[in-house]
Amino acid sequence: MKEAAVAANRSVALPRKKLFRLPVWKRRTLSAADLFVYGAVASVLFIVLCALAPQWIAPFSPTEMKADRVLLAPTWQHLFGTDYFGRDVFSVVVYGSRDSLIIGVVSVLIGSVAGGLIGALSGYIGGIVDTALMRFIDVLMTIPGVLLALAIAAALGPSLTNVVLSVAAAAVPGYARVMRGTILSIKGRAYITASRSIGTSGFAIFWRHVLPNSLSPLFVMAAIGIGSSILTGSGLSFLGLGTIKEIPDWGALLSQGRGYLTVAWWICTFPGLAITLFVLSINLLGDRIRDHLDPKRSRA
């Protein structure tokens, strides 16, 4: 009997364990939205690499002028052609990404911090402080952001620092409004009331509970705001209010190439495509960050 039971157990085919399994990212079917997001990440990383180490990407010096290569159409040697000075347009676009990226990132940092601080103080303190700060923000919001940045840049003069400050100042009202609304929605929740009931100080409640739970909308807005800040900064440079340097940024390249649009379309076309690609990639990443931080929206 024992031998028969052993033979029967041996005859049962046990499932074999797979020794090798595909990684999760290979087993998962990629959707079109995922492909767009991965492409956006690759585009942003490439432009950041161009800004940090342009000498690794650009095949020529952005200041190298060659009289025998003026206004050459795009070829394998000059991917974006050459301009009226004989410079390689691709190299100039690569080196010009640094100033454009500085304008977008630094202005968003300054604007989000300043606007977030104003909105946090206004929403949490309330009373006359809220009234005074919000009336000031309302006055700024009556002026279109581009017009406000243009007025500030014209008053300060053309330089990279002034462009950053102008774009940041134009973005402050939006961040302040978003932060104030988030603070007001958090102040009335049950755990805030419970913290007050046990004697927790107002500053401790703000620092431990209110502020950490109110930063998510600000992060999403800042991520999307980088693209709009680059557009605004490029517009100021296009109008001649940006930085005056030997290596122009993308907005200044557009301004320099507009006079040759009918003769050499590539001088301003490729900088415009670089702005479009970067802003589109930033907006895609901002939408994905918003969906990640807002589960209800992602499920909808």
Rank of each mutant, 00 (worst) to 15 (best):
I230G: 11
F36S: 15
R288W: 02
G123T: 02
I128S: 10
I192V: 15
D34F: 00
G286R: 02
G272F: 13
I137C: 09
V164Q: 08
S166C: 13
L215C: 12
S97K: 15
S197V: 14
R258W: 07
G119L: 07
W76D: 14
F206M: 12
A264V: 11
A4C: 05
I143T: 03
L280A: 06
K18L: 09
P54N: 08
V220I: 14
Y38D: 07
Y260E: 01
P173Y: 12
V172T: 03
S234H: 06
C268M: 13
K187G: 05
S31V: 07
S31N: 01
V172A: 02
V178D: 14
Y95D: 04
R196Q: 03
R98C: 00
L254P: 00
I205C: 10
M221Q: 11
A170M: 12
R189P: 01
D249R: 04
L19W: 07
D130F: 08
G227I: 00
D88Y: 03
F270T: 00
V24M: 14
N162G: 09
A53T: 06
L140Y: 14
K66Q: 05
P62R: 07
V210T: 05
C50F: 11
W76G: 06
G272A: 14
P212L: 08
P271C: 08
K296N: 10
A67R: 03
R69L: 07
S201C: 09
L30R: 09
P62E: 04
R135V: 01
M65G: 08
K2C: 10
E3D: 15
Q55S: 15
A170G: 02
S31Y: 10
G127F: 11
D99G: 10
D294I: 04
P212G: 10
V178S: 01
V12N: 06
I226R: 07
R208K: 13
I267W: 07
L79N: 02
T269A: 00
F278L: 14
Y84T: 06
L22Y: 08
M141A: 04
F36Y: 09
T161S: 00
R290Y: 02
L117W: 06
G116W: 04
N9K: 09
R299P: 01
R189S: 05
P54H: 08
